[in-house]
Amino acid sequence: MRYMERELQILKVNLKHFILPHLLLSIVLMGLSPLAIGIENLDAQRTARVLEMFTALSGIIILTPVCLPEQNSDIRELVEVKYLSYTRVILARILENLFFLMIIIGFYIIWLKLNNCSFPMLKYYLGTLAEAFFLGGLGFCAFMILGQIAVGYLLPLMYYIMAFGGGRRLLGSLYPFSMIYGSYREKFYLAVLGLVLFVVGVGYIHFYKKLRYRKRADKA
């Protein structure tokens, strides 16, 4: 219980101090969408368009900035010397942010359904989540390795832009708007690659310090 209490406290602090503005931004953008996007009486193809081209972008907003609070290296140093490893803190935050992402996308899907849109709910939910997860993973990994939040947002956005012009030919199995064409296979690849990117990002933080100094010490 004591262990759980500490983890819960980390999640509470993450929600209150770090991720809340990003969640609110996603919710506001989704909430305002009916003003500009039709979310009523859509057929499956048009629903897919809304979910893949709009809703999935919330993955970038919610998952990329997991480690933004520690972008200041002094804060990072202070957190890294503590008993509870920083890696565990990051993992807890990723899971929490992912949880909220699932909730937000879930509610949006239900809202579409209540607005008389006809589409396969579970498939579209998982497909949108896979794409959002991948976009977030790309941003998270870029931020971790290159160390700048601007780059963390830039890379998933560029991937998204590439998908527009000739994207299907160019991106192949990683094409994000495949549900519009009735295909789900690409979503599986995106989900797996998203997971790989998160693992690489977390692994980089965890092992970087050791790898860098061990390699150089051996040479000395």
């Binding site: 039709g38 009523e40 859509l42 048009r46």
Partner: peptide, 8 residues
């Protein structure tokens, strides 16, 4: 209205 299909 913003490029996304909307039925009125």
């Amino acid at each position: 209205p913003i490029g996304f299909y909307k039925e009125v």
